[in-house]
Design a protein around this nucleic acid. Structure first.
Lengths: 190, 190
DNA sequence: CTTCGCTTTTGACATAGGACAAATTTAGAT
DNA sequence: ATCTAAATTTGTCCTATGTCAAAAGCGAAG
């Protein structure tokens, strides 16, 4: 059955009738991408969102030539350009695969249409936005109130597997410190 | 007509039929609050969301005795505790009025019910979450990539009227600097 | 097993912004 | 106008983190 894992994740968030799932499946194509593939490019339209069935990605900006990682996304997650989906503008962010990725692709126009016409999917969209909003709000708080070392520790306990799967520099830019500083931080205390 | 301004704002975000507006109005009560009133308290349930018709509020955390302002909200905005609305947990944040506020109050349970039963309102909920998510994501980027002075300048041009309406310390904690630093920053260059 | 390239660690020094306290300005009350 | 409390500015010193560059470490390809 296609989208098994993705659908399971969606159904943990809110109820979706079989009819709704069928509607969604009608709009979806399975794709495979190699490691280091750019799913979304800055300053371009991408036209699709991706439901990750397998693999791992990161989103980042380039500011003054520096990459700033803004999020990591794994199985069950959904990838898209906010600028494009919300405002029909070119993306400001990149999204790249960190491993080989299997994902279900959906046209942004279909996703928008489904949100407008199908209440269940609209509610699911609301719920993922709520969760994401809460998450980013929390990390905002941590950035304002915790010193770098504790932010690192919070990161490790929130994403225990990520440190093994990606290299230091990416996590450093996610935490808002330099790679050297992060290296020193984790050198301390064990 | 009640909720004139609020409804107008909502309708700039997405279409709402008169029937839907009536449904919403049925759940809503007008309230007035004095300056410095706590609309939402941390570590407590508040049970309501507020549509601001007139006035100005701020949300904040208290971390180690320090207040950290996380957002300002004015006319047309909606106030609620994420923890409570999303997860039925006690609020972690405070929300206080910075001026006299007129707001329409709705029970969180009614808001949740409306989102579940009324597609138009659910879609409106999705849109406000999209916008808020985009905004916080952007400010996250600024915090990671801009030095304090430029973040201050970005703040001033984004909320030109806020600096006049609130005192320095609140903006400082919003920007993640101390009051003295912010004072020095704006002293520079004019 | 050696080599080449990538990643991480370490070192020396520089600096933005923090902490704390005092001085000054501003704005309500009387 | 005057007094008082609150808000802002300023001074001094301090620390966490940045910058830049060099040195290790490590893993895949020959």
């Amino acid at each position: 059955m296609p989208m098994e894992y993705v659908i399971k994740c969606m159904r943990t968030l809110c109820p979706l009738s079989d009819e709704t799932v069928r509607e969604l499946l009608d709009c979806v194509t399975l794709c495979k991408f190699p490691r280091k593939h750019l799913l979304v490019k800055a300053d371009a339209f991408c036209r699709y969102a991706y439901f990750i069935e397998k693999g791992f990605t990161r989103s980042y900006w380039i500011v003054d030539g520096e990459e700033i990682t803004t999020s990591f996304m794994g199985e069950g997650g959904i990838i898209f350009s906010m600028d494009e989906l919300y405002y029909n503008k070119k993306s400001e962010e990149y999204v790249e695969t960190l491993e080989e990725v299997e994902a279900y692709r959906i046209a942004l126009s279909d996703l928008q249409r489904l949100w407008r016409t199908n209440h269940e999917l609209c509610y699911w969209g609301l719920v993922i936005h709520q969760n994401e909003y809460r998450r980013i709000h929390q990390s905002h708080k941590e950035r304002l109130s915790l010193p770098a070392k504790e932010r690192y520790e919070a990161f490790v306990s929130q994403f225990p597997n990520v440190m093994q799967r990606v290299n230091l520099a990416l996590v450093a830019s996610y935490l808002g410190v330099t790679q050297s500083t992060l290296s020193r931080l984790r050198g301390m205390h064990e």
